[in-house]
């Protein structure tokens, strides 16, 4: 699905990613772990096309396309979804109106007719249930006045509505209590299929108790320094990131 080769990226002239190599196939779940400042969120931002970041070297092939050449909206239309670490509040824009516009623009991009209003509403109800999002929240302005947990659930709700091929969850577990974590994980698990892939970016192992990764990678100082299976996450949890630092340095 996606092949990342020797990816280097910087922001404001500061090099953050220093040669990432990663291959993800359809149906897989990859966890990317690492200490603060290792470049995890930068990787997510670069893949989603955040304009502040500059890719200085390397390539990203996404389903046969050069991902780095696509605009952020076209990446989304091609099926890339980023669940934000800090979802943005947009007062005055209703969640529903925004999702309807998004879905229809994606459909136009794919050469499809806009969705019928009643199909949209049915889908809305079904997906709301999936992430146990209150109908009232779905009707409100995007994330306005939502609690931290509600914002994260709203991200997964949007993901459910947009049905991405590649979902990138950027620290979706941060700031979640255990109930919210379970709901979010449950939503992600239900959306998993053999045709899509998930990248979970996290600092802690906790989320991986609920979403079992096929692979775990450790990002440190802008590079993947260690890869393994889910046992690696447990080892990290036990020993802390210092052991990685010692191993690398």
């Amino acid at each position: 699905m996606i092949t990342i080769k020797n990816l280097h990226a910087s922001i404001d002239g500061k090099q953050i990613l220093k040669g990432i190599n990663l291959e993800i196939k359809a149906g897989e779940v990859h966890a990317i772990m690492g200490p603060n400042g290792s470049g995890k969120s930068t990787l997510a931002a670069v893949l989603a096309g955040r304009p502040e970041y500059e890719v200085t070297e390397g390539e990203v092939n996404y389903n046969g396309k050069n991902l780095l050449e696509l605009s952020p909206e076209n990446r989304a239309r091609e099926g890339v979804f980023l669940a934000f670490q800090y979802p943005i509040e947009i007062p005055g824009v209703s969640n529903i109106n925004f999702l309807k516009t998004a879905i229809n623009e994606i459909r136009v991009y794919k050469g499809l007719e806009p969705m019928e209003a009643k199909d949209f509403l049915m889908m809305l109800k079904e997906k709301q249930k999936l992430v146990e999002l209150d109908g009232k929240l779905a009707n409100r302005s995007v994330n306005e006045g939502f609690s931290g947990g509600e914002k994260k659930r709203n991200e997964i709700f949007q993901m459910a509505m947009l049905e991405p091929k590649l979902a990138i969850l950027d620290e979706t577990d941060s700031g979640l209590d255990i109930d919210a974590l379970r709901i979010v994980a449950n939503g992600v698990n239900k959306l998993k299929s053999k045709d899509n892939a998930t990248i979970i970016i996290t600092h802690y192992q906790r989320l991986l108790d609920y979403i079992i990764p096929d692979f775990v990678h450790v990002l440190y100082n802008g590079k993947i320094v260690k890869s393994g299976t889910k046992e690696l996450a447990l080892e990290l949890e036990e020993k802390g990131y210092d052991f990685i630092k010692e191993e690398v340095e």
Binding site: P51, P72, E73, F81, P87, F98, E105
Partner: peptide, 21 residues
Amino acid sequence: FYLLSRGLGTDSAKKLLMNAF
């Protein structure tokens, strides 16, 4: 950027935000 990342084009993202304002 948040709106673009959900598949909205620049024009409709701006329109949505102006309308919200």
